[in-house]
Design a protein around this nucleic acid. Structure first.
Lengths: 134, 134
DNA sequence: CTGTGTGCAAACTCTTTGCATAAGT
DNA sequence: ACTTATGCAAAGAGTTTGCACACAG
């Protein structure tokens, strides 16, 4: 277990330091997650891993650059990182700042317009904003 | 011209002060726009309208609450306001921080999943991220 | 050993707030 | 006059950075 996580970090071209390995473990052990840096930091502290917030930010960006994470574009000040880098979309619960995966259900977009000259589509994000039914 | 903008501000339940009217004019005079607070602030100053950044933020939020603007959820730290409040989607040019409307082309989403119990869909945002073709 | 990573605190950016002054009705 | 908006400067949140020390290879 530990070994495979270490390998994953190593494969990303990063040295598997205590902190990075621990963070990777928290991130990737339990399936898909959506976390802000502060949430992960708190989780790490609760798990007894002494790590500074700056290191969490560093690690998150390094993992992102390595393709292990993607950044979620939800409005608001916080940046969310998604451990599921495959093509999928999200519910965003307004007022709660909570992100949910839209589970698999093959959401499809039709009639996507041509991008302007010289541009290509990097990816398509769909965010379904939810509010409590009154 | 001036009068109809004033009326629009008034209809939103806001007093048409010099600053608000001027900002509304900049926002709504030239079709659909995507602006951050700082961009609008700068535009106002260039147009000879002395207005503070705080007032720009206030006005943008008041207009948003009144339904004259909507907030655009593109990743990154800046908040963008969209003068087109109808249902439409966006291109986002990576690296340039530029937002473009996906002009009309009837983009449709199929197989939208059911929202979880007790929730309803507030709206659906689609962001097509673009990058320069290499 | 050598170089990369870490922790801390300070800097930075964007946004919001408090309060005295100014402007709208 | 009475009320609401404005401007300024300062506070706040989230994120990034610079540098001395520590650790992995």
């Amino acid at each position: 277990m530990r070994t495979s996580i270490e390998q994953r970090v190593r494969d990303a071209g990063l040295r598997p330091t205590r902190q990075r390995t621990a963070l990777a473990e928290l991130l990737f052990a339990k399936g898909d997650r959506h976390l802000s840096a502060e949430e992960l930091h708190e989780e790490a502290l609760n798990a007894g891993v002494a790590v500074s917030l700056a290191t969490v930010y560093n690690a998150l960006h390094q993992f992102t650059d390595a393709g292990l994470l993607r950044i979620l574009a939800v409005e608001g000040s916080r940046t969310y990182f998604d451990t599921n880098t495959s093509d999928h979309h999200h519910f965003f619960v307004e007022g709660e700042n909570r992100v949910l995966d839209i589970c698999s259900g093959p959401v499809t977009v039709s009639n996507l317009p041509e991008p302007p000259e010289g541009m290509e589509i990097a990816n398509v994000d769909i965010i379904v904003r939810l509010r409590p039914k009154r």
